[in-house]
Amino acid sequence: MSTELCSSCGSCGFPMRSAEDHAGGDPQCGYCSTCADPSGTLRPYEDVVEANADYFVREQGIALTAAREMARALLDSMPAWKARP
């Protein structure tokens, strides 16, 4: 069903369409520019939760508390955070 047209971020699942979507503008990086710093290193979990929550608030106007919960649920199901204690 899925055709690998674009890769999705290993941390948040965001589909990365252009080089700028990847951290540091590097298409080889498996994380998006929201989840990783310009060197491609994944940011700390709480920072990534906050960045993803901000994105939900900005794009859909939902409450910040609900956005944080949503972001946690999303991240916890992703490969990058599976091993998180």
């Binding site: 948040c12 699942g13 965001f14 589909p15 994105y55 939900f56 794009e59 859909q60 919960e69 949503m70 972001a71 649920a73 999303l74 916890d76 199901s77």
Partner: peptide, 21 residues
Amino acid sequence: LPPAARARLFALQSAIASRLR
């Protein structure tokens, strides 16, 4: 739906909303 599944739906809608915005 379980929270992770609902979050996936929401992420998809955010992607549409982002393009529209």
